[in-house]
Design a protein around this nucleic acid. Structure first.
Lengths: 181, 181
DNA sequence: ATCCTAAGTTAGTGGCCAATCACTACCTAG
DNA sequence: CTAGGTAGTGATTGGCCACTAACTTAGGAT
């Protein structure tokens, strides 16, 4: 397998592992095992652990952005919000790790900034701004609607993190299409 | 100092440390240093590290709940949402650690559940449900409004975690009173 | 055949960290 | 004065983990 292919499978494996364990709770050994490769080899493909985490974060945000643009494609503006909500619901169901990884990314940025490391946060904010802008454009460049859409998305993330099952009363306030299961 | 007083100061110190480092990124040594006590003594006051984290999580959620009920007290229903939003904004400004700790709590629950530990999540969900219910009651038991209020709160948390400064365009979609600074 | 490169491994190191154990200093009630 | 409880410490340990260095193997071109 070429180094580039390996890099990509490392990123996917890293996303799964980091999603559950977070930055400090995930060993590079665990990632390597999942890829099926020796642990030291990761450090040939990436300069250090943080670089692996950053790549996983960016991949996670970028693919989520894609899900949104994909869902809205070709629809009239007024139907796009519903379509994007439905697509996110499907994402949660099919691949909950992506959403856990999002949360892990946020707290990792906070931790990095607290330690004086600005670079990591910059890189994540760049990726996240693309997500924001994509949603913004799909929703007809309406700021309030964009904010509201993302706000509900964040509450979904939180409720999933906290492990509230589908059907729990905390889900009542959501559009049907944005509820889990 | 009595053991009970110590316990409380440990909880406050733990909240500050865990807020920035997360569960795995914070050493009990760091907490002990902040309290001004030896590291082994923490294990007299708490059975293990997770118990310290849980206490800090509960304290964090409970005091946030209080901020909301305090802010709404004595106001007519239609003014409460604004008052609570303003109170949260003040909280962010005065004590950003409380909000980082919230996020750390969420991902820690996800991690614990992933490892098969249900108890920790149960305890956090109990505390969180009290927050939900408090907001729900203050807002006149309107489910949709409660959900929306919390959703915006979660987006605030995210943007703060990501380090977006006051005045950034991502804050445009919020009520004036809910923006930072 | 031979050389080179790219993909990959085994073995190891230094540092950190949760948790335990055995101990000390102080206070208070009888 | 002393016996017991309460607040607290120093030393240690066993395990994990990021990262390094040095070695190995397989394929393609000359």
């Amino acid at each position: 397998m070429s180094a580039e292919e390996r890099r990509e499978s490392v990123i996917r494996a890293a996303m799964s592992e980091f999603a559950h364990g977070g930055y400090n709770g995930t060993s590079t050994e665990a990632i390597a095992r999942r890829v099926g490769v020796s642990q030291p080899y990761l450090f040939r493909l990436f300069p250090n652990k943080q670089a692996i985490f950053l790549a996983a974060s960016q991949y996670c945000i970028a693919t989520t952005t894609e899900v949104f643009t994909e869902a809205a494609k070709g629809l009239p503006v007024e139907e796009r919000l519903g379509a994007m909500a439905t697509a996110y619901q499907k994402l949660i169901h099919d691949d909950p790790e992506r959403l856990l990884m999002q949360m892990q990314t946020y707290v990792a940025v906070a931790a990095a900034e607290a330690e004086g490391d600005r670079e990591f946060g910059e890189a994540v904010r760049r990726a996240w701004q693309e997500l924001w802008d994509a949603v913004h454009i799909e929703l007809g460049a309406d700021v309030d609607e964009t904010t509201q859409f993302l706000a509900y998305g964040m509450l979904v993330n939180t409720l999933v993190c906290l492990g509230y099952p589908a059907g729990h009363r905390n889900w009542e306030g959501f559009y049907e299409s944005a509820r889990p299961e």
